[in-house]
Amino acid sequence: MSQINELYHRNYDRHPPALVPEYKTSVLRSPKNALISLQNSLSEITGPVFGQHELGALDNDLILNYAKQGLPIGERIIVHGYVRDENGLPLRNALVEVWQANAGGRYRHKKDQYLAPIDPNFGGCGRMLTDDNGYYFFRTIKPGPYPWRNRVNDWRPAHIHFSLSGDAFAQRLITQMYFEGDPLIASCPIVRAIKNDDAVRTLIAGLDKTASIQLDSLAYRFDLVLRGHRATLFENRLQGKA
């Protein structure tokens, strides 16, 4: 069994800070104290392991997994890409979970009151495990933008929420994927919470004509990176004495 080592320290310059007043909800939901930094122990470098048998056959097909009397309305797209670590190595068997609004920007959630209608044939969530190359793919309807109560005229760009569980609990990540060319990206307070423009660009999926299916679906490519493990360790500090 292979030894698993510490993770590289997280580069907080590329993540949004906790307090971003322009994103108003963060004002009361951000800690005032500094985080306390821990050197990794077994608690951080291990994490839950998931199996294919836990998922259903249509779990990565948002076009069909809630279709009741017909197909959902909207742009048929495939989203695909690779999940790697900071060393560029593929992350195998990572759990990727996604959720999104329908083509009109309406979420199937008891708390969403937006007047755009629910699509009776669209649920809006899916999940999958990456393969041995770290590859994942799912099929869906392109989500619409929607208004939200931040400032009264704030609109979210079209986006798909992503949750990733790699092989360590300290890699746990939730993020959002945006679509190439969307003019709402530039004015969104949630996007702008990330201060580094290069980091923002990594959240924008590119149109991938090569992977599109003729007369059927366009494709978008979205790669993700989770924290990487240190390769060298001269003393077995993580689980006791060498």
Binding site: H15, P16, S26, H161, A199, V225
Partner: peptide, 12 residues
């Protein structure tokens, strides 16, 4: 490779 930046999980 730089780690993918985080975003809020949102209300939904």
């Amino acid at each position: 490779l730089p780690e993918t930046p985080s975003q809020t999980a949102g209300p939904y």
